[in-house]
Design a protein around this nucleic acid. Structure first.
Lengths: 263, 263
DNA sequence: CTTGTTATG
DNA sequence: CATACCAAG
């Protein structure tokens, strides 16, 4: 089973850069996108419903802003839009499909870089999210929470960790939250299970020559329940081409899915 | 003496398309630009003060909107910003330099295409402008009023005149105003003096394939006082390259200027 | 369709 | 710096 997550930074821009022909060659079972930055009526072009996937979008109410999507090769038993938290849901940040015992989520956590008030929003979401994620652990289900978490965990997860300790995305409070996600709630960073190497990032600022110099951050994850830890086969970040300021994180799992019947 | 007029549709965009290297090769004495769409503080780059010209800008108060400029090889005796009409002047639509007995003006008449209320503004400007232009005729001076007049005069001046008789830019009232400008106020369409050919246009819509099909309008003029009629040597529209949705109108006059000393 | 604006990341 | 938006032409 192959799961791809990508912050598209505008699904229409990513499409212009060849995302969809590339996707068609990846044999993915699930594709989780974040920052679609479009409302579904703006995605009338057929390319935005790639075959053979079942395609789901959860848009922000504000035009051109945020929004997540999931493409699922397998018809989901259920699709969940949002978490029932009004402000968060209005920003199109959580979409979930259930296929058998497995739940796949596309999550786009708020960025705190634009203002102090947005950092407060990010903290409020985190505060509410941890208990919710803990509560999921009581179910007899496995979860793969794909997304742009907008936080790097450890010094190995970004190029310049020293100079970023006061910047949103690598604040001590954010790193401590990720500690709790792993140590207390028991989740696992799927990518790290398969790939312990440094200097593997998923996002590079557009400013300066961050990409050319690999001045990046690893802020896109596939966070998994522990029952999937032993099933991680492979993780890689696709950097041969650029569709966005983020790179796709492609993960393969040993998981018995029904045969993929297209839509 | 060479005078060039061009609606630049954003002087910064025109610069990216090579306007300034091209200008340097034209040996112009005066360059009149319209729709600079910039405020002077945004034109810090030295390219926007091309040598050896004396450069003058008259910006709109609204950012990114309207604005006119004149580059004069000869140090003007006087530079006039606006006509003293508050609403009109706030939109940066009139700039005038005086060199000896000659006045050169860069004029950008309002467009009426965006709304009925803007068409009313255009009519109000026209109503006020004609008496003003008539009053200039009482002076012992010659005038070259360069600009985007946003009106075609006769069927020969646009490709599809029949279908445009109800469209702003070829309304009967606008055409009648131009009749009065010529017949009553005595001004002369300099371009037409030198070039009677049809299908010579200065503006092509960006929509459709207007440029490729030469579906254009002649709405940029050098309007001259009758004393200059016999001094028109040549008029041509430069279409070998595109700097804007308008093309430069280049005119040569027999006029005794002092030797051009650069700034 | 294109320019330049603005908000957001 | 890039992707959206919007106003204007």
């Amino acid at each position: 089973m192959r799961v791809i997550t990508l912050n598209a930074n505008g699904i229409r821009a990513a499409a212009r850069k060849g995302l969809y022909p590339w996707l068609a060659r990846q044999r993915a079972d699930f594709v989780c996108l974040q920052e679609t930055r479009a409302q579904e009526y703006q995605l009338a072009d057929r390319c935005f419903r790639p075959r053979p996937f079942h395609c789901f979008y959860h848009d922000a109410e504000k035009k051109g802003y945020s929004g997540v999507a999931i493409y699922s090769r397998h018809r989901p038993d259920r699709v969940v839009h949002g978490l029932g938290w009004p402000g968060f849901d209005a920003e199109g940040r959580w979409l979930e499909v259930q296929v058998g015992r497995l739940n796949i989520i596309s999550l786009y956590l708020p960025s705190g870089t634009s203002s102090e008030s947005r950092q407060q929003v990010k903290f409020e979401v985190l505060e509410r999210l941890l208990p919710y994620l803990k509560s999921l652990r009581r179910k007899r289900r496995e979860y793969i929470i794909c997304g742009d978490w907008n936080m790097a965990h450890k010094p190995i997860d970004l190029k310049n960790w020293r100079s970023n300790q006061k910047n949103s995305g690598f604040l001590p409070e954010e790193r401590a939250w990720l500690d709790r996600l792993f140590d207390e709630a028991g989740y696992v960073d799927g990518h790290r299970v398969a790939d312990p190497r440094p200097e593997v990032y998923t996002w590079w600022s557009n400013r300066g020559r961050a990409w050319e110099k690999n001045v990046g951050w690893r802020i896109d994850y596939q966070i998994i329940t522990p029952g999937l830890r032993e099933r991680v086969r492979r993780a890689r970040v696709y950097t041969a081409r650029r569709f966005s300021d983020h790179a796709p994180l492609i993960m393969d799992y040993d998981w018995p899915l029904p045969d993929g019947r297209g839509c």
